[in-house]
Design a protein around this nucleic acid. Structure first.
Length: 217
DNA sequence: ATCCCGAGGG
DNA sequence: CCCTCTGGAT
């Protein structure tokens, strides 16, 4: 990778997806946080089908903190990993109530300390809430595209994030995640990437490689 | 069978 | 490092 190529990739992605943004539905910080926790190993689409009923029943941090586990599990069952997620959400809300006056914190360090919140989730919440990311959220799409486009040769999310930061302007960190995720869902898919109609093909080292097993890290 | 905006525990 | 948790779509 080099600065010229990375700038070009960012420019092309922005041109293709000028409206790229977090695709989770939310109206408050706690809703964003809960939706992001639910999105683990699930699709944003499925999360968005699940959250309306959930947010109708639980509105505030305190509502989630005093939620009944079994009741919460039932409401989020369709997103998968529901027992872990229900427990995470309740413990997450309790910690915010205890340590942050029932307000979702907006720094990466504070978010990462909360139960159920790892590096990726913390980056999403921090970036979307503030508009300026302290880091870059590395999910399965960002991992795959970073590898295919030549931003990284590492497979550890932490190292991938560092590699991306080297080439992307910090003002683009939040946008970059959304751009890569969007492109990953629509074109550079895990199984059958549509290289024939990809506007990044000219700068992509992996273009046209049909064996998708070798494309994924 | 594989994948989806992962985290926690061993 | 590895494993488990989980359901729905493809």
């Amino acid at each position: 990778m080099n600065k010229t190529t990375s700038s070009r990739i960012v420019r092309l992605l922005k041109r293709a997806y000028p409206d790229a943004a977090c695709s989770l539905d939310f109206k408050s910080p706690i809703q964003l946080a809960v939706a992001t926790i639910l999105s683990a190993q699930s699709t944003d689409e499925r999360v968005n089908l699940t959250t309306p009923a959930l947010f109708r029943k639980y509105k505030t941090v305190k509502d989630f903190a005093r939620a009944e586990g079994s009741e919460l599990e039932l409401l989020i069952k369709a997103v998968g990993l529901y027992r872990n997620k229900a427990k995470s959400i309740i413990e997450f809300a309790k910690a915010i109530q205890r340590d942050h006056k029932s307000r979702v914190p907006t720094t990466l360090a504070e978010l990462e300390k909360l139960p159920g919140v790892g590096r990726k989730t913390a980056n999403v919440i921090q970036g979307v809430l503030t508009g300026r990311g302290e880091g870059i959220a590395v999910d399965t799409h960002v991992t795959r595209l970073s590898f295919r486009l030549g931003f990284t040769k590492n497979k550890e999310p932490k190292k991938i994030e560092q590699d991306l930061k080297k080439w992307i302007d910090s003002s683009d960190w939040v946008m970059m995640s959304h751009l890569l995720i969007r492109h990953g869902r629509e074109v550079c898919k895990a199984r059958k990437p549509i290289c024939e109609s990809c506007f990044l093909a000219e700068v992509c080292p992996k273009k046209g490689v049909s064996n998708t097993k070798r494309l994924s890290p």
